[in-house]
Amino acid sequence: MMAEDRPAGFALVATPPHCSPGVDFFMHEFFLLQPYRGMGIAEQAAATIFAMFKGNWEIFTNLGEKNKVGQHFWRKTVANYTQGLYEEEVAVTADADGLKLIFRFSNHRLD
């Protein structure tokens, strides 16, 4: 991710076999430096990344009280990108790292 012609963050997208069965792309890491947050850069970057990779997507985020901002970000970003055509679930993930908020969508016909 770039902002003001400088690196502002990064994203790591996993593909099979590092995804759940039936998932083509998993947002493994997504980070934006603090000075660039709240400016719409992260949502724009996520949409650009989604558009680059067409298929079935899955995103996890922590369900804890300390991650309300992250939960809100992904809910808003995925809802905007998919025009509300996504699934949201709370479940224990395969990595057994506790409960996660899970977003799933397909962008085969989006954009």
Score class of each variant (00 low, 15 high):
M2Q: 15
E4L: 13
D5G: 11
R6L: 13
P7G: 10
G9L: 08
F10R: 11
F10A: 05
A11I: 14
L12R: 11
L12S: 07
V13H: 10
C19K: 08
C19T: 15
P21R: 11
P21T: 03
F26S: 00
E29C: 01
L32I: 15
L32W: 06
Q34P: 06
P35M: 04
Y36S: 02
M39F: 12
A42E: 05
A42Q: 04
A42D: 01
A42L: 06
A45M: 11
A45R: 09
A46R: 07
A46E: 02
M52C: 12
M52P: 02
G55I: 14
G55N: 14
W57T: 01
E58Y: 07
I59P: 06
F60Y: 15
T61K: 01
T61P: 07
T61A: 07
G64S: 12
K66M: 11
K68I: 06
V69D: 04
V69M: 05
G70E: 04
Q71Y: 09
H72C: 04
H72T: 07
W74L: 02
R75S: 01
K76C: 03
T77H: 04
A79W: 10
A79G: 05
A79Q: 10
N80I: 00
N80G: 04
Y81A: 00
Y81Q: 01
Y81R: 03
Q83M: 03
Q83D: 02
G84T: 08
E87H: 00
E87D: 08
E88A: 00
E89A: 02
E89H: 10
V90Y: 12
A91G: 05
A91F: 01
T93Y: 13
T93R: 02
A94M: 14
A94Y: 14
A94C: 12
A96G: 05
A96L: 13
D97P: 08
L99T: 03
K100W: 13
K100F: 10
L101K: 09
L101N: 05
R104W: 02
N107P: 14
N107L: 10
N107Y: 11
R109C: 08
R109S: 02
R109Q: 12
L110R: 08
D111Y: 13
